[in-house]
Design a protein around this nucleic acid. Structure first.
Lengths: 210, 210
DNA sequence: ACATATTTGTTGCTTTTGCAACAAAAAACA
DNA sequence: TGTTTTTTGTTGCAAAAGCAACAAATATGT
């Protein structure tokens, strides 16, 4: 997440905001929500990590999006035309605020400061989401497993301001995120290492080129 | 595009809006803009069709997004971390409004009705963009050429409210949009036809299953 | 600390995809 | 209308990716 808005700077203003919002907690591996029909559901992740995943008919699992603190998600951003299951799964203990999207724009009945701040920062959060999605598309349109890996590593390196960084997924999840076969990806990682494009130590990667 | 907002219902209010906006025309195959650095550029397509394309180092061309009337695009939605060329190319005669994104939120110096309407509908346009991008990700994460084709055909069929519909691309462009090799895609289309999943007559497709 | 479950690393084999090349059909253009 | 360019349809062959299976290393839970 690239936003300068950090929800936890404001969350102390959140006591009993208007009755339109729910605050919920989830344990690792619990389902936060599933996208079934459009209920204008809008969620903000206060803490933890979660993935939007799809299980297709062949048993393939795909990580469509990866969410961390201050990221937004929910059915309001999705027109559900697929017949696959779309779930948001907690990857660690998570705290989530759940709104109806259109309730955010109207003034909170208790006129709480948190609600006000949220609606003020909403455009920024949304712009960041679009930027993230565009990067995701950019990555997924790469033709080969190698290009996907290098493209993703470049992003991580840029984010970390360092040629060395840690993959924020298990390698199994990384394959599901890049939408490639895990064993083929492992093979490619080995080749990238053998050809001195990268150094790899578990989940720690160093870019050796440029 | 799925929005209920249609820019041409309002464009008559656009005379000489504030000096912050440019209206430009482009012929087929002209470059509308290229994404180089972040200038907060925000564009709306008034008429015509355009593609956001990337040319990579191997000479592959990818259609990242396809734009039609009322669609929005521009550098403001992109953090340019790639070293590939990103261009918006007119696929037909196009008319485009070009803003600085942050000028839209502030009141127009001439207080014109068009500007007012635009800023009012902006959240809706942006929500639609996110929905479109999510569908795009959904499609691109499909593992096989077959699944990509069927997934895309389902979208078109749903949009057209009909099992028969026309592909809005040339088949060459469709391959670039689905990020697959054209000849492999043609082979797969033939297989889908032979196995009675679809009927195909040039660019007209009929779904035969379900 | 131990037993159990998950992830990582690896490989042989199969299937799918990509590449190159070319003819036929269709579209654009002059 | 005739010529040129682009798109479509097809194929043989090469390369890449997917599948299945298993051992070793880590992580998890009690």
């Amino acid at each position: 997440m690239t936003t300068s808005f950090n929800i936890n700077e404001f969350i102390y203003d959140f006591k009993n905001c208007c009755n339109k919002v729910q605050k919920k907690s989830f344990n690792k591996d619990e389902t936060i929500t599933s996208y079934i029909r459009n209920r204008n559901q809008f969620c903000i992740l206060i803490s933890g990590n979660a993935d939007l995943v799809r299980y297709d008919l062949n048993g393939n699992r795909t990580i469509i999006e990866h969410f961390s603190e201050s990221d937004i998600f929910g059915e309001v951003f999705y027109s559900i035309t697929t017949n696959n299951e779309l779930l948001v799964e907690a990857k660690s203990k998570c705290e989530v605020l759940i709104y109806n999207y259109y309730d955010i724009h109207t003034k909170c009945t208790k006129n709480c400061k948190f609600h006000q701040t949220l609606s003020e920062y909403l455009p920024e959060l949304i712009l960041n989401k679009i930027t993230d999605l565009n990067m995701r598309v950019e990555l997924l349109t790469k033709r080969t497993t190698r290009d996907k890996l290098l493209g993703y590593f470049n992003l991580l390196s840029t984010k970390a301001l360092n040629k060395t960084f840690k993959i924020p997924f298990s390698l199994t999840d990384l394959a599901d995120y890049l939408s490639v076969d895990r064993s083929a990806m492992m093979r490619e990682l080995k080749l990238l290492k053998d050809e001195n494009f990268i150094n790899k130590n578990g989940k720690e990667i160093t870019l050796l080129y440029k």
